[in-house]
Amino acid sequence: MSRTVQRVVQQHFSALADARTLPPHWYRAANKLSRCRTAALGGHVQSCPNGHVERVWYNSCRHRSCP
């Protein structure tokens, strides 16, 4: 299983937030990073002209900490 920033935030941020008081910008960043490149932020479909191949590309959160 690969570790990504998104997966770490999704799995461990709530425990960190429960353990201490965090600044509001941390919550905003964690929310953006956990939703990055998912259907929650929308996306678009790219396909070949003949309709053989389609691929869904999800939008980035565009947060400055996003890898």
Rank of each mutant, 00 (worst) to 15 (best):
M1S: 13
M1A: 11
R3V: 15
R3L: 15
T4E: 09
T4A: 10
Q6Y: 04
Q6K: 14
Q6F: 06
Q6M: 14
R7W: 07
R7F: 08
V8R: 00
V9H: 00
Q10M: 07
Q10H: 05
Q10I: 13
Q11G: 06
Q11C: 02
H12D: 10
H12L: 14
S14I: 10
S14H: 01
L16P: 03
A17V: 04
A17W: 01
D18Y: 01
A19W: 03
R20G: 09
T21E: 15
T21D: 15
L22V: 11
L22H: 11
L22T: 07
H25R: 12
W26E: 07
R28N: 04
A29Q: 02
A29P: 02
N31A: 15
N31F: 03
N31V: 14
N31H: 06
N31M: 08
K32W: 02
K32H: 09
K32V: 07
S34M: 10
R35V: 07
C36N: 09
C36S: 08
C36A: 10
R37M: 06
R37L: 08
R37I: 04
A39W: 01
A40L: 06
G42E: 02
G42Y: 01
G43C: 02
H44S: 11
H44P: 06
V45N: 12
Q46M: 05
S47V: 03
C48S: 13
N50F: 03
N50E: 10
N50K: 06
G51M: 05
G51I: 11
H52G: 13
V53M: 07
V53L: 10
R55T: 10
R55V: 04
V56I: 11
W57L: 14
W57D: 11
Y58S: 11
Y58M: 14
N59M: 02
N59Y: 09
N59C: 07
S60I: 09
R62G: 04
H63M: 12
H63G: 08
R64S: 14
S65M: 12
S65D: 14
C66D: 08
P67V: 08
